[in-house]
Simulated assay, not measured.
Amino acid sequence: MTTPETAPVSLVTGANKGIGLETVRRLVDAGHRVYLGARDPGRGRAAAETVAARFVQLDVTSDESVHGAAEIVEREEGRLDVLVNNAGISNPVREVHDYDGDDATSVLLTNVVGYVRVIHAFLPLLEQATVPRIVNVSSGLGSFGLVRDPSRIESRAGTPLYSAAKAGINMLTARYAQLLPGIRINAADPGMTATDLNGGEGHSLRDGTDAIIAFALGGPDTPTGAFRDRDGDLPW
């Protein structure tokens, strides 16, 4: 029987709103002790209070911030069972001729480098867990298969930098799953979900977090190195 002391410990980055906050809510409902990571302390604490989670200040672009968060979890828990890498940005979105190197640096620093920074900071704590899991929140926009399928909305999205970042996350997921066989590492695509990032268009937050939660809470048959949305496997 799970008790408060033996409950799984989870961390979700970029979790003060949207998909991140809904993921926290569902993990709390599943009996996890959840750390809600967010850059802004005011917004993060307020969000954590609404879902009975624990706030931890965490800016994925800062080594100091990420390692500080890891030290807190280590001191309070001694392990981490589930890491959900969710923090990311969509901006800037411009007319294609107007992109520059600084735009690419901004997107990749948060959406790709940030995932690597968090994984490595928390890796020692994940390796203390019995069945550790990493869920990297990705997107069908990073799928080479879907971008070539004219029947899919992903083929018509004009987001080259965001798409490149998500493709990078997919490859990181596949390679880390090979190199860290003791951890189940997967990429989840929320699909078109109604959040601030896309003007509130798409399906519900619950639908958007289904794939994340399936990887985070799945049983012994949960794969590693997979890329899925709520309906199943996706082409890389």
Rank of each mutant, 00 (worst) to 15 (best):
V135R: 13
V9I: 12
L234S: 03
D229Y: 00
S90V: 08
G88P: 02
L27H: 04
S62E: 14
V51T: 10
R230H: 03
E95R: 14
E5T: 06
E74Q: 13
N85C: 13
I89N: 07
G140I: 00
A214F: 08
I185N: 15
A165G: 12
T13V: 04
G88Q: 09
R79E: 09
D189T: 07
P8D: 04
I19Q: 00
P150E: 14
R206V: 10
T209E: 06
D149R: 05
V66N: 11
Y162A: 07
V82P: 02
A53V: 07
T224E: 04
R45Q: 15
L21M: 02
L126Y: 06
R79N: 08
A157C: 03
T13P: 01
G158R: 13
G208I: 01
L146M: 11
A188P: 06
T3G: 11
V96N: 13
L36D: 01
I169H: 07
D207M: 05
N86F: 07
K166S: 10
S106W: 06
A164I: 03
I134A: 15
L27T: 02
V137P: 00
V118F: 08
Y176W: 15
S62V: 02
D229R: 00
L83V: 07
D40K: 05
D221W: 02
A70G: 10
